[in-house]
């Protein structure tokens, strides 16, 4: 199946990634790819190295070994903000919103990588700076409409309930209009209704905007429903990489989740 995929269908590929902190190995020789336009799930028990994997893709951790290919090019050592400019956006497991700012400002901050007005026009707030501000405001308003968060536009995000904060965080990642969207447990801690909403948003983003999505999620029902392909990590190693159905029936995966002893 892998063979039928054309080279340029692959948006991101990690090859033989190994990451360790001091003596502790977090990831060991991991390789997988993410194709354009797909929803890719990364699953695994706690401590499997899922978030570390996202951090590597983000450029927040730098693996000791391995290569990352993005958009057909080998990526060299990069800082996270440079990676963001390449077109990778992300949300976080524990909400990492800018608590002192309003929803609107959080989303506008998400668009910073697309803004360029220089210091002097910023100082005067006329000409390019204001034009740019309005142009981006329109984009952000579209996202606000899409996520149905009009009513909390000017509320400081610190005051919002948990589910709403998750939604705003998704909005902030969307605002970057990236090629690849990394979602770290977007539905963690949500009730059923909120989860359904979030699933809908994720699928809509994928279908309407054509954004490629990689997500970490613990809720197997969700993963099976919305993802095209699943990669399973356990103790920093890759356990499986296939379609949701195959993963579900893979005995090794079942063992990993049910905690059969590793010896």
């Amino acid at each position: 199946m892998q063979d039928t995929v054309r080279e340029d269908d692959i948006l991101l590929e990690v090859r033989n990634i190994s990451l360790s902190f001091g003596g502790v190995t977090a990831l060991e020789n991991i390789s997988f790819d993410i194709r354009r336009g797909e929803v890719r799930a990364i699953i695994g028990p706690n401590g499997a190295g899922k978030s570390s994997m996202l951090n590597v893709i983000n450029g927040f951790y730098h693996p000791q070994e391995g290569e990352i290919w993005f958009d057909g090019k080998l990526r060299h050592h990069m800082k996270p903000h440079q990676v963001a400019r390449l077109g990778i956006a992300r949300t976080f497991q524990n909400i990492a919103l800018f608590k002192g700012m309003s929803t609107l400002d959080n989303l506008m901050t998400g668009r910073l990588i697309n803004m360029h007005a220089n210091l002097f026009s910023q100082v005067a707030w006329i000409g390019p700076a204001q034009r740019e501000e309005i142009e981006h405001r329109q984009k952000v308003e579209e996202i606000i409409d899409f996520l149905k968060i009009q009513s909390i536009r000017k509320t400081p995000v610190g005051k919002l309930p948990y589910g709403m904060q998750k939604r705003v965080e998704l909005g902030r990642a969307l605002a970057a209009e990236s090629k690849l969207l990394l979602l770290d447990e977007p539905m963690a801690g949500m009730n059923l209704e909120e989860k359904e909403d979030m699933c809908r948003f994720v699928l809509d983003v994928n279908e309407q905007f054509g954004t490629t999505i990689a997500l970490i999620e613990h809720d197997m029902g969700v993963v099976m429903d919305i993802s095209n392909r699943v990669v399973v990590l356990d103790y920093g190693k890759k356990l499986a990489d296939s379609s949701p159905d195959e993963v579900r029936n893979n005995p090794e995966v079942i063992d990993a989740y049910l905690g059969v002893s590793h010896d």
Binding site: F21, G22, S51, N94, A96
Partner: peptide, 10 residues
């Protein structure tokens, strides 16, 4: 001098 190296997480 004696502090441990800080590993930041997100």
């Amino acid at each position: 001098l004696f502090g441990e190296r800080i590993i930041e997480r997100v």
